[in-house]
C-alpha cells in the first residue's frame, strides 16, 4: 500500500510545525546568548521536517519517546509552549515542575511519554508503550526517535528484534544528521544506510530525504498505518543535517565548513515555505500571519518562564517514590 500525496491542509500543518520549531530554536539560542536562561541546549535547526511530517500522521493519543536532542520532536507533537519553556528554564510551572529539564521533558497530555538523555534508550521503552496498546487492543501507535549514533548501541538491536518478533505497533524514526556527537557517520557506522539494518529484523526499512516534507510524510504515513493495522514495526531513516553542532556552544571544529554551508543553503524551512506559496497551497499573507502568531506565543512563553518561580526546595524529597521520602 502506498500512501496518498497529502492535501494542502496537511502540508500547511507540517509547515506550521516546522516554523514553530525554527522560531522556537532561534529564540532559545537568543535567550541563551543573553544569559537570561542557562541550560544544556541541543539545537534542532535543520532537522525541522522529520518530526513535523511524522506528527502529521499522529494523534494526541499516540505516544512518542524522544531523546535529549529532541526539542523539535516535542514541539511537533504539540507540547504547549509555556509548559515547555518553563521546563527548559527549570521553573515550577514547567511540564515536570523543573525537575527534568530539557533532556527529560514529559507531557503525557500530548503523548510525550519519555525523553531520555541516554543514547539508544528511547527504543526499548517505546516498545513497552506499544506493548501496552497491543495487549489492550488499542489503536494507538508509538514512535521512537533517535539519531544515527544510537543505531550502533545494543539497545537498538534488542528493541528492533523484540518489536518485530512481537509485531508491536511502533515506528522507529532515525534522524540521521551525519554526526554522532563529533564523529562523522562514516567513521562510526558500518552500513551506508541505517535503514539496511531493518532487514536483520524482518521489518520494512526505508531511507528518505528527511528534509523533504512530502517524502517524509509518505514514509511516516505508511509506517503508522501499518502499525495501526497490527502489521508490526517499521524503521524510517530520515537523512538530514544539524546546523549548529552537537550542543549549544559547540564550535563545530570537527565539521567540514563546505558541507555545512551546502546544507544551510538548502534550509528546509524557507524552501518549503516558498514551495507552498509557489504551488498556491498557501499565500504569503497566510504564512506571515501564522508565523507572527507563533512569535507572539513564544514572547508569552518566554515572559511566562522568566516570571515563573523556581521549584520549592521541598521538591527535592517529592516524586522519588509515591510517598515522600526524607532519608
Amino acid at each position: 500500500m502506498t500512501a496518498a500525496i497529502p492535501d494542502g491542509e496537511i502540508l500547511v500543518g507540517i509547515y506550521r510545525r516546522m516554523t514553530r520549531i525554527k522560531q522556537n530554536d532561534e529564540r532559545f539560542r537568543a535567550v541563551l546568548k543573553s544569559g537570561k536562561l542557562v541550560m544544556p541546549y541541543y539545537s534542532p535547526r535543520g532537522q525541522e521536517v522529520i518530526p513535523s511530517a511524522v506528527s502529521a500522521c499522529l494523534d494526541d493519543e499516540d505516544y512518542i519517546c524522544t531523546i535529549y536532542r529532541g526539542v523539535h520532536d516535542m514541539i511537533a507533537k504539540g507540547i504547549p509552549l509555556n509548559d515547555l519553556w518553563a521546563e527548559f528554564g527549570g521553573r515550577a510551572t514547567g511540564t515536570c515542575k523543573g525537575k527534568g529539564g530539557p533532556m527529560h521533558v514529559t507531557h503525557p497530555g500530548t503523548g510525550v511519554m519519555v525523553t531520555t538523555g541516554i543514547v539508544g534508550s528511547s527504543m526499548p521503552i517505546a516498545n513497552g508503550l506499544a506493548l501496552a496498546a497491543q495487549i489492550r487492543g488499542e489503536k494507538r501507535v508509538s514512535v521512537a526517535y533517535f539519531g544515527d549514533g544510537a543505531s550502533n548501541i545494543g539497545a537498538f538491536h534488542e528493541a528492533l528484534n523484540m518489536a518485530s518478533v512481537w509485531k508491536l505497533p511502533v515506528i522507529f524514526v532515525c534522524q540521521n544528521n551525519g554526526y554522532g556527537e563529533h564523529t562523522k557517520y562514516a567513521n562510526s557506522t558500518a552500513v551506508a544506510n541505517i535503514a539496511q539494518r531493518a532487514a536483520s529484523y524482518s521489518m520494512p526499512g526505508i531511507t528518505v530525504d528527511g528534509n523533504d516534507p512530502v517524502a517524509t510524510y509518505l514514509a511516516a504515513r505508511e509506517a503508522v498505518d501499518r502499525a495501526r493495522q497490527g502489521l508490526g514495526p517499521s524503521l524510517i531513516e530520515a537523512k538530514t543535517f544539524r546546523f549548529h553542532g552537537h550542543v549549544f556552544g559547540d564550535a563545530d571544529a570537527y565539521m567540514d565548513k563546505g558541507e555545512k554551508d551546502a546544507w544551510m543553503a538548502k534550509d528546509p524551512v524557507p524552501l518549503f515555505r516558498n514551495w507552498l506559496i509557489k504551488t498556491g497551497l498557501a499565500s504569503e499573507d497566510q504564512l506571515a500571519t501564522l508565523e507572527a502568531a507563533i512569535e507572539l506565543e513564544i514572547d508569552e512563553a518566554v515572559e511566562f518562564t522568566l516570571n515563573s518561580p523556581y521549584p520549592d526546595l521541598a521538591e527535592l524529597h517529592r516524586d522519588i517514590y509515591k510517598d515522600e521520602v526524607n532519608v
Binding site: 511519554m113 519519555v114 527504543m123 526499548p124 516498545n127 513497552g128 508503550l129 501496552a132 539497545a155 528493541a159
Partner: peptide, 9 residues
C-alpha cells in the same frame, strides 16, 4: 524497557 514503557501507561 518493555516493562517500563508498559508500566508508565
Amino acid at each position: 524497557g518493555a516493562a517500563i514503557g508498559a508500566a508508565i501507561v
